[in-house]
């Protein structure tokens, strides 16, 4: 894909592993404003939480995920939920292998909007090629819950989506979510030739923190 050339080439050069064993995954976060997309993205990539201002346009972050038989390099596109950016959002989710539609369990409206996002996305993706997840975020606010766990789960089941209730604030279920997606993405892209060449040694030192450069990736530690 032409548009990936720059970034991919640059990173691969600086990555001692080489890119042959690595699967690049474009993942996009969608959902209305204030549901916690940026916070999730920050958890994914730096396992950190900060109160953040509304995203402008789209933020791009990366994260490596190591499964027992593959390394996935997630390129996370954290889109702005604000309506004014909707017209440009397709720019960001085009070609994504994974899409997370996020809503806030304490905000019913965001759940309704998540369904609209789902419709929008259905126009774009080819079933089986894009892994779509429905994420019920802010599970730490369960005292002011407006969307029940069951509601979210049954919507996801109907549409055949991955479902997870998370809290970007506490970190609850966030890495599980990313892992789950990683597995599904890997399954759906079996034909990828690179996977066969993946080397186990790469994952051995995964437990230490990522390198100091925040834009480079660090690895999730996974007990699989």
């Amino acid at each position: 894909m032409a548009e990936r050339r720059g970034k991919g080439a640059g990173e691969a050069r600086s990555d001692p592993r080489g890119k042959s064993g690595m699967l690049r995954v474009k993942m996009v976060l969608l959902g209305s404003s204030g549901v916690g997309k940026s916070s999730l993205a920050l958890r994914f990539s730096k396992d950190d939480f900060k109160d953040s201002a509304p995203t402008v346009g789209c933020a791009y972050l990366t994260q490596l995920v190591c499964l027992h038989d593959a390394t996935l390099r997630f390129e996370i596109w954290d889109t702005a939920g604000q309506e004014k950016y909707h017209s440009v959002t397709p720019l960001y989710y085009r070609g994504a292998q994974a899409a997370l539609i996020v809503y806030d369990i304490s905000n019913r409206e965001s759940f309704m909007r998540a369904q609209l996002w789902l419709k929008e996305l259905e126009k774009q993706y080819v079933p089986g090629e894009t892994v779509v997840g429905l994420v019920a975020n802010k599970s730490d606010l369960s005292s002011s819950r407006q969307v029940s766990l069951q509601e979210g789960r049954s919507l996801a089941e109907n549409k055949g989506l991955l479902f997870m209730e998370t809290s970007a604030k506490s970190g609850n279920q966030v890495s599980e979510l990313l892992l789950d997606i990683a597995h599904r993405v890997k399954l759906s892209s079996r034909e990828d030739k690179g996977l066969a060449e993946w080397r186990e040694a790469d994952c051995v030192d995964m437990h230490r923190e990522g390198r100091p450069r925040p834009l480079s990736s660090c690895c999730l530690t996974i007990g699989l």
Partner: peptide, 30 residues
């Protein structure tokens, strides 16, 4: 105004009103 920029690389449409009030540039901010 956007602390969010500190998290990653930003790619956003932005218009420069005095340059051309009707069109977007795309800004990369990091």
């Amino acid at each position: 105004a956007s602390s969010a920029f500190q998290a990653g690389e930003i790619w956003t449409p932005i218009c420069l009103p005095l340059f051309n009030p009707d069109c977007y540039f795309y800004a990369y901010i990091s």
